[in-house]
């Protein structure tokens, strides 16, 4: 389900793994409409698919009845994208350092690190009704 006004668009998807590519297509289409460079589109797509993966798997535990909401807000020279799930929340500070020698060969655990590296800002909030909201921003000009 998608919604939009002049400067913001959103999509709500159920928690199935196939929804990651649905969100990516939605995101990239809207970014391309704004003539944003391929390099920035790739960074945003990488970050958002990381966060949607996390929301589906770790937040909503792949429970299809639980939703993930992705909202894209275009501002003057930047875009803010928020990803909200209906899970139990988590503490991002407790994630092990993926570039520590002992973690380098682990198959998982790099998503949040990559998001932090590619985005200009990353903010976590935990709405009182439950769930996790992650908002990222990136300059687009």
């Amino acid at each position: 389900m998608a919604g939009e006004n002049k400067n913001s668009v959103s999509i709500t998807v159920p928690s199935g793994p196939e929804q990651v590519s649905v969100v990516d297509e939605f995101l990239e289409n809207h970014l391309r409409e704004r003539k944003i460079s391929d390099d920035i589109i790739a960074d945003l797509a990488i970050a958002v698919t990381e966060l949607v993966n996390n929301a589906i798997k770790h937040g909503n535990k792949n429970r299809v009845e639980k939703k993930v909401i992705v909202c894209i807000v275009f501002q003057n020279n930047k875009v803010e994208i928020s990803i909200t799930d209906e899970g139990d929340g988590f503490d991002p500070e407790t994630i092990p350092d993926p570039v520590a020698e002992e973690n380098l060969l682990k198959e998982i655990g790099r998503g949040v690190f990559i998001v932090n590296s590619l985005m200009d800002s990353v903010e976590y909030s935990f709405p009182s009704g439950g769930g996790t909201r992650v908002a990222v921003t990136k300059k687009i000009v």
């Binding site: 990488i46 698919t49 060969l105 198959e107 998982i108």
Partner: peptide
């Protein structure tokens, strides 16, 4: 490959190890 995220990197690591 246009880009990959940590899922792709995890698959490469899994194959490598």
């Amino acid at each position: 490959v246009e880009w990959m995220n940590s899922t792709g990197l995890g698959i490469l690591i899994s194959g490598l190890t």
